[in-house]
């Protein structure tokens, strides 16, 4: 059941609106991670508007699919989508990172409906997702677990501990996604600490590896469908993305990793996203 053409058009428009929302949020907040929020928009749109089973009115519905944003600094993109779905009031988005408000700089499960576990310190989300997948297996439950990591994040040693665990326990109810945007704070991933060859590494660790165009809804939805059919091992989707996607002067720019747009930059960006 891949995405029909009319649905793809609809989701593309949602992705555009989410990019606008994310840029506005970040500009208002005055800080935050722009590049890595823009690179995961289509991944999140495909998950939340095509794949995941959930109920915003009942965020702790036991049979929901779980999504863990291991690269917690992508929070603005996740917040924008959760607000749009009705997990909380969209007015909260304007108060991102402000004192005594719901939306923390990185995802916090205690304050924010729809967040399964707190993340921010990198490398922990895959382990937590494994734990959830183990629980689902124990309970013979049908729900699945999705976890989104950064490519730079896979430099963390814990990721590879968790990679072993998922394969060892045959977690075929788990789908990992790597937002391969090729950049990290200090520069390009291959120059700072090369993680390639990613596909071969994950395969050697016992995973089924799929690759997708991380900004193409058809490519992503096909990968997610395929992933669900794999039995006996976990699946990793390497989603090739562009950091800062959608705004020409942010695309592929290291400088926008942890920096919010200025008012002028926002204005320029919004013109491009019309």
């Amino acid at each position: 059941m891949s995405l029909p053409e009319n649905k793809i058009l609809e989701l593309k428009e949602i992705a555009r609106q989410l990019r606008v929302e994310v840029l506005k949020m970040l500009t208002l907040a005055g800080s935050g991670h722009t590049g890595g929020s823009l690179s995961i928009i289509e991944i999140l749109v495909t998950l939340y508007f095509f794949k995941l089973r959930y109920d915003p009115k009942n965020p702790t519905w036991p049979d929901r699919d779980r999504f863990v944003l291991s690269k917690g600094h992508g929070a603005p993109a996740l917040y924008a989508i959760l607000a749009r779905l009705g997990y909380f009031n969209e007015a909260e988005l304007k108060k991102l990172r402000k004192i005594n408000e719901m939306l923390q700089g990185h995802p916090y499960n205690i304050s924010t409906p729809g967040i399964e576990i707190s993340t921010g310190s990198l490398g922990q989300g895959l382990s937590a997702a494994n734990g959830m997948a183990l629980a689902a297996k124990l309970d013979k439950a049908k729900w699945r677990v999705y976890v989104l990591m950064g490519d730079g994040e896979t430099q963390e040693g814990q990721i590879w501990e968790a990679a072993m665990t998922a394969a060892h326990y045959h977690l075929d109810n788990l789908c990992g996604i790597i937002d391969a945007n090729k950049l990290q704070i200090d520069g390009s991933v291959c120059e700072i600490m090369n993680v390639e060859p990613m596909k071969e590494k994950w395969e050697a660790f016992g995973w089924q590896v799929l690759e997708a165009d991380g900004h193409n809804l058809h490519s992503l939805s096909t990968a997610f469908d395929q992933c669900e059919k794999i039995k006996g091992k976990p699946c990793m989707i390497i989603a090739h993305t562009v950091k800062g996607k959608g705004v020409s002067f942010m695309e592929g720019k290291v400088g926008y990793h942890g920096v919010a747009p200025t008012e002028e930059e926002l204005e320029k960006a919004l013109l491009e996203l019309r």
């Binding site: 494994n130 734990g131 183990l134 665990t165």
Partner: peptide, 8 residues
Amino acid sequence: STAAGLAA
């Protein structure tokens, strides 16, 4: 962290 996921 796996224990945290199981608990969650």
